[in-house]
């Protein structure tokens, strides 16, 4: 059982070249900001190290910070043996949203990462099968981005709510 504060201390000792910060909002729970290129390494340590043993990745979610023009991915980990939880967050610029995949560490990340790719457009490098998962393969745009405008027609079928109701009326 470790608090995020303790975990960040251990990480600081492990990776001395980075400065690790525990971020938090005014409510809710804190998270650790991880640089994009380090996430795979960190994940492996978090899963395998006897001090952490984060054997499950509960959730992986993609976020879009439109104000900062950044994409984010939040990882929520839990250890069933040590019973502690942790949130990690990676943020990358919108122009080059590349994050190493953690699919090889937690298999569950496979579909979650596909969803994040589908919804906000985060590119997970070395993911074995990065296809759209919820939207059709040839859909345009990333629906969960804040500035997303749905395409008007999909293969000649109108997608907007208005056009449909106008047709029916």
């Amino acid at each position: 059982m470790k608090t995020p504060e303790e975990i960040i201390e251990i990480l600081q000792n492990r990776f001395t070249d980075e400065e690790w910060i525990l971020e938090s909002g005014q409510s809710g729970l804190p998270w650790i900001r991880v640089p994009a290129n380090k996430i795979k390494e960190v994940s492996k340590i978090l899963r395998d190290d006897a001090e952490f043993r984060f054997d499950t990745l509960m959730c992986l979610s993609g976020l879009h910070y439109s104000a900062e023009q950044e994409l984010g991915v939040a990882y929520h980990l839990h250890s069933t043996s040590l019973k502690h939880s942790l949130a990690l967050k990676v943020r990358v610029p919108e122009e080059k949203p590349e994050i190493p995949s953690v699919e090889s560490i937690w298999k569950t990340a496979d579909w979650h990462e596909r969803e994040a790719w589908d919804m906000v457009g985060v590119q997970f490098t070395d993911h074995p099968d990065l296809r759209r998962i919820l939207c059709p393969d040839d859909w345009e745009g990333y629906p969960l981005r804040k500035d997303y405008v749905p395409q008007e027609f999909y293969h000649g079928v109108p997608t907007g709510e208005k056009t449909v109701s106008e047709q029916n009326d």
Partner: peptide, 24 residues
């Protein structure tokens, strides 16, 4: 109007762990 912040809450739904990740 929750304060700024985020959290992940999970509950046991009949099918398993149902988590909500809410960012405010």
């Amino acid at each position: 109007r929750p304060k700024e912040g985020e959290l992940y809450v999970r509950t046991e739904s009949p099918r398993g762990e149902l988590g909500y990740y809410i960012v405010s």
